[in-house]
């Protein structure tokens, strides 16, 4: 119990006693049990587990990277790497005077296109509504898509963006992180691209390690090897 942070898996009894169960734990009698693989944290009287695996659950205002998978005459469907399909209505792109007769959806976005989008509405009773009508949102025309576990996105961003800034500065890459674990990397130089991708994958694999920032820095500063 000296160490407050513990590696846990589902069923592990984190502790017993009068604690308040928060995310990813349940109370069974007086036992606090983890429901996820992750790292448990005890703060004052509350206990939670930060998960290391699992699907993306949409949250309003989240920035996500989506892939167009299909469209009807009124809307597009986006794969947002979630339990739910993202729903992008035609009005969002064509404006309020959209006409299902005159406007052809595939002229703007077609199957396979990647977009940066924001979750506009979501309440679990229907598929999440997304929007691309804002600055910095919309179709992505260049870059490489890298996929990581959505649960590791906070680690990739780092405290106040430190991790991502470290990677961008060392490689010269521009990185857009979707909260859904999809990341778009653009870089002028092939070497920078390769290193940035490697750093992102490293965060994905070693998210549980305490001195991860140092390890990533070390890799970025190393010369030559791919």
């Amino acid at each position: 119990m000296e160490n407050k942070r513990k590696y846990v898996i589902p069923g592990d009894v984190i502790t017993t006693g009068p604690y308040r169960p928060e995310q990813n734990v349940i109370l069974d009698g007086n036992k606090i049990i983890s429901t996820a693989i992750g790292i448990s944290e005890i703060y004052d009287d509350s206990i939670k587990v930060i998960p290391l695996t699992g699907k993306y659950i949409p949250k309003i205002d989240d920035l996500v990277i989506g892939k167009v998978v299909s469209h009807t005459s009124l809307s597009w469907e986006l794969d947002i790497n979630s339990c739910y399909v993202g729903f992008l209505p035609a009005q969002d792109v064509f404006g309020r005077d959209f006409s299902a007769h005159a406007d052809e959806l595939s002229s703007k976005l077609k199957s396979g296109d990647l977009v940066a989008a924001r979750i506009a509405n979501f309440d679990r009773t229907r598929d999440p509504l997304v929007t691309i009508a804002d600055r910095d949102l919309g179709k992505i025309d260049s870059g490489h898509l890298v996929k990581i576990s959505p649960s590791k996105v906070p680690r990739l961003i780092g405290k106040r963006g430190t991790m991502i800034q470290t990677i961008e500065m060392a490689t010269g890459a521009a990185i857009t992180i979707g909260q859904n674990g999809w990341v778009v990397v653009s870089c002028e130089t092939p070497e920078g691209l390769l290193k940035a991708k490697k750093a992102i994958q490293m965060v994905d694999e070693k998210a549980h390690v305490a001195n991860l920032t140092d390890q990533v820095k070390e890799m970025l500063e190393s010369k030559g090897e791919s």
């Binding site: 167009v68 998978v69 077609k110 396979g112 296109d113 990647l114 260049s142 490489h144 898509l145």
Partner: peptide, 12 residues
């Protein structure tokens, strides 16, 4: 399978 993303397709 699934839809391949267009960026990757053009990169190929």
């Amino acid at each position: 399978t699934s839809v391949i993303d267009e960026l990757k397709k053009s990169q190929i």
